[in-house]
């Protein structure tokens, strides 16, 4: 059994995001970076499979050199190896390009299972793993809250609005992971030390047969702004009976929303 885990390094969304003067990007100075939370769950799920029945786990990231730190964290959790698809700083790559590169990297590894987060919490693109699956012509399921493997198949619970689907996928397959599935472990100090010695290969887009032009972003952010700040912030006073009456009046007569 070989599992590839796709892991993205993202800014911690608890940070303050300031709109840059060009109004086309956010100020990245001073941002703290973390592993995208859902990817942590994907990594944990891979390690649980490894512990249950043995598996080789390779963590794959696309980004700059600082991704290595994120990948080492996953290796400290238990992954065996890493492959970094290294891209030049400043190159804006769209989801289609990211997926092409990751698909090429996954193909080289030929895993039985690809695990990824259901979305990366920076741009919430929510599409890269599905694209990887389609580009490699693999069956896939998204937003999975339960995963079982048996007889060369994956049985998954896929969350939908107000319910779930239980789906059986033949392996190899791509599965994106939802939060409720497990509790990611904290790497222990000896494992952090050991992880530093695990193999981490770097490949370039050219190594994967892709040109910078082929992965060029065709979905450009042309403007960023702060979200609406025009809330009324009206505290409705008085005793409880008066306050609820007034709020219901406001919602019904003023806002026409009730």
């Amino acid at each position: 059994m070989k599992i590839a885990v796709l892991v993205k390094r993202v800014p911690d969304t608890a940070s303050v995001f300031k709109v840059a003067p060009d109004e086309k990007s956010v100020v990245t100075d001073g941002l703290k970076y973390i592993i995208s939370p859902y990817d942590e769950h994907a990594a944990e799920e891979a390690i649980k499979i490894q512990e249950a029945g043995g598996a080789e786990i390779v963590v794959i990231s696309l980004g700059g050199d600082d991704c290595q730190e994120t990948m080492r964290t996953v290796m400290a959790m238990g992954a065996d190896r890493g492959v970094l698809v290294s891209v030049p700083a400043g190159l804006s790559i769209g989801a289609h390009g990211v997926a092409q590169a990751l698909a090429a990297a996954v193909k080289r590894e030929a895993p039985d299972l690809v695990l990824a987060g259901k979305q990366a919490v920076d741009d919430d693109a929510s599409q890269v793993p599905e694209r990887v699956a389609e580009l490699l012509d693999l069956p896939h399921a998204s937003v999975v809250s339960k995963l079982e493997l048996a007889d060369g198949k994956a049985l998954v619970d896929r969350e939908i609005e107000g319910g779930k689907y239980r789906i059986e996928l033949p392996l190899p397959a791509v599965v994106t992971i939802e939060k409720g599935i497990n509790t990611p472990r904290y790497p222990k100090l000896p494992n952090i030390m050991k992880a530093k010695k695990k193999p981490l290969d770097t490949v370039t887009l050219e190594d994967l047969g892709l040109s910078a032009d082929a992965v060029k972003n065709q979905a450009e952010v042309t403007k960023v702004a702060s979200p609406r700040t025009d809330r009324r912030n009206q505290i409705v006073g008085g005793d409880t009976a008066d306050a609820v009456k007034e709020v219901v009046r406001l919602l019904r007569d003023e806002e026409k929303a009730l």
Binding site: T13, V121, D124, K223, P227
Partner: peptide, 20 residues
């Protein structure tokens, strides 16, 4: 086509212009 899309947990709102 220009899509409005929240980024970074909704802390900024982006206009995304799609060329493809």
């Amino acid at each position: 086509l220009v899509a409005k899309k929240p980024l970074y947990a909704g802390k900024v709102l982006a206009d995304v212009t799609i060329q493809s």
